[in-house]
Design a binder for these strands. Structure first.
Lengths: 174, 174
DNA sequence: TTTTGAATAGTCAAGGTTGACTATTTGGAT
DNA sequence: ATCCAAATAGTCAACCTTGACTATTCAAAA
């Protein structure tokens, strides 16, 4: 997937890093932006190496286990800008896995789906609270915008679901 | 993936169908809800067969090529309701591939990213127009809600991006 | 000083996903 | 009659993703 490559190349644009470092950064800071797992990152880095976008060399500090250090090449830099331009001009596909359940709402009676949707609403609320209690990272304008973007969608989702629930409730009461 | 199964089981809850029919329905009506491809649908149906959630039998009408007809079993029905309940109570993960580009916005000068973001804005606008010019399907409450949900996010995205662009423009003008 | 749990670092088999492909039939234009 | 495009129906090798696993080092408690 192209986004995986863009993400990894972008991280390496800042500085060369070893695998663990890259994955730690993704896990701790980028959970909102990507769901890429550690193994996928390693596999993607391997592919980027083969393509010549990234250069890998092993390093050993003291008697710590060896580490794979990845650096972006000139070719990789060019590729990064290509992917970046494409990504910035692209409109997201946006399909929500929860819509699949929504589509079959009619298969359950009100008494069943009402508490389920409320459970979903509570989870969304928690995500928003968590988000708003997290201080901005300070990694730059772009990162802040990406976070803001995420929050916008969380809130849109929350308000929509709240409205759905109250409309369904009204229909039921009739 | 569980959503794939939920979707296919849900479709088969209405009536037994052959593979082509299922895929046609997904392609023509469900492009907004899922990105599952034909081959994935066949593979998933195979797995559902092995699991005993679905029963497949070959059928031949006239001298048309044979068709695989899939029906949901009792076990599949139970599984469908399990997956449905879980899905309805679940909050979406929501990660937007376009956020990855956003994060690296700082790597491009204003003159470069400004037209790219505008291009994205135009694409979003077209998607919204297309959406609003499409009449409701009439497949039931749930389907209508899923469509509404999609539109909510499209609009949220559009307004956010418009706001980003005008803010960036203001910063630039300073 | 020994145990133990977290951090460090990465591997791989198993499973999921899809682009490209095969093949036949039908309907309409030529 | 004949040709061509679209519709019908599905297959498969190649590629992508990940859960579960291995193995070492460090820090701190017991």
């Amino acid at each position: 997937m192209d986004e995986r490559s863009l993400l990894l190349l972008g991280i390496l644009m800042v500085q060369s890093q070893h695998g663990y470092q890259i994955n730690e950064f993704i896990e701790k800071n980028l959970g909102r932006v990507t769901d890429m797992k550690k193994s996928t990152a390693y596999a993607t880095l391997d592919r980027l190496c083969e393509a010549g976008d990234v250069y890998m060399h092993a390093e050993q500090e003291g008697n710590r286990p060896f580490r794979k250090v990845y650096s972006i090449t000139q070719r990789g830099t060019t590729h990064f800008f290509e992917l970046l331009r494409f990504n910035l001009a692209k409109a997201d596909k946006m399909n929500f896995s929860s819509d699949i359940g929504m589509m079959f709402l009619d298969h359950l009676p009100y008494e069943e789906f009402f508490p389920l949707l409320n459970e979903r609403l509570v989870k969304l609320h928690k995500q928003i609270e968590l988000f708003e209690s997290t201080p901005p990272h300070g990694y730059g304008l772009g990162v802040d915008l990406a976070m803001e973007h995420h929050l916008v969608h969380l809130k849109a989702d929350y308000h929509w679901l709240a409205s759905v629930i109250s409309r369904l409730q009204a229909t039921q009461a009739k």
